[in-house]
């Protein structure tokens, strides 16, 4: 039996009005690994990431062609329930976006929406995921406070816990450390490495060193084109494409 990765992108094209942002991108994302999407800014990294959980849908003038298969189901198939697709993925954005509610309610948001959970069980769930995100010890006495009072680094880990609480299979990170100080960044990176045991992780970054630190698999985008992808060690050691080489040596950034 062929083992199919549960996230696979096939011939994906994305247009903003007339502009073609992604050009015929195809890639299988390996399970239980950290895949890092790198490339110069404005090359479509974030667009690729957002196309994976259909966050491009609400934008005006966006057109998506091609297929994104999650567990062999095309998420752009009109019969696919978009909330189910998104539930399978947790998102970490560039700046942490705590919802306008308490720390507790942020984590409980997903479980409350998706299924009735009784109060006691919900409390356990919240604790479990806050622990997983390495935040529990810092916030356990102030769960009722507005999430906006946490430091930015804490907020990002809260967002991680919030995403995990929905029970996803995949974690998407859109430059998740770009707003954080070095120490918080390190903290988040460590969490991601821990989490790949259970989840498939995809991270967009423009920091080459970060990619080298955490990546198992690399995808290099250049002007909307997927130029090169493969296991990180291989790609960093012997980049095949001249553009990839130029990027690695810092000639283009």
């Amino acid at each position: 039996m062929e083992i199919r990765p549960h996230l696979s992108v096939q011939n994906l094209n994305v247009y903003f009005d007339q502009l073609r942002i992604l050009k015929d991108v195809s890639i299988d994302i390996p399970d239980h690994k950290i895949t890092v999407i790198i490339g110069p800014s404005g090359c479509g990294k974030t667009t690729l990431l957002k196309s994976l959980n259909r966050l491009l849908d609400p934008l005006d003038g966006v057109r998506v062609e091609g297929r994104v298969l999650v567990d062999n189901v095309d998420i752009y198939d009109p019969r696919t329930e978009v909330t189910e697709v998104r539930k399978k993925m947790g998102l970490l954005s560039q700046r942490p976006q705590p919802l306008p509610m308490s720390i507790y309610d942020n984590v409980a948001y997903g479980p409350r929406i998706h299924n009735h959970v009784d109060k006691k069980r919900l409390g356990e769930v919240v604790e479990q995921y806050l622990r997983m995100a390495g935040l529990w010890e810092e916030v356990k006495d102030r769960l009722g406070e507005p999430a906006s009072r946490l430091s930015v680094g804490q907020q990002q880990r809260l967002c991680l816990a919030r995403g995990l609480a929905v029970g996803p299979e995949i974690i998407l990170g859109d430059e998740p450390t770009s707003a954080l100080d070095p120490q918080s960044s390190q903290n988040v990176e460590r969490r991601l490495i821990e989490l790949k045991e259970e989840y498939t992780v995809i991270v967009v970054t423009h920091i080459l060193r970060q990619a080298k630190r955490i990546a198992d698999y690399i995808a290099f985008l250049y002007l909307g084109e997927l130029v090169e992808h493969g296991p990180a060690a291989e790609v960093f050691a012997n980049p095949r494409d001249p553009r990839m080489r130029a990027y690695l040596t810092g000639e283009i950034s």
């Binding site: 909330t83 998706h114 299924n115 009735h116």
Partner: peptide, 9 residues
């Protein structure tokens, strides 16, 4: 139960 809930949502 979850799919019933989804219908309601």
């Amino acid at each position: 139960r979850e799919s019933r809930r989804l219908r309601r949502r």
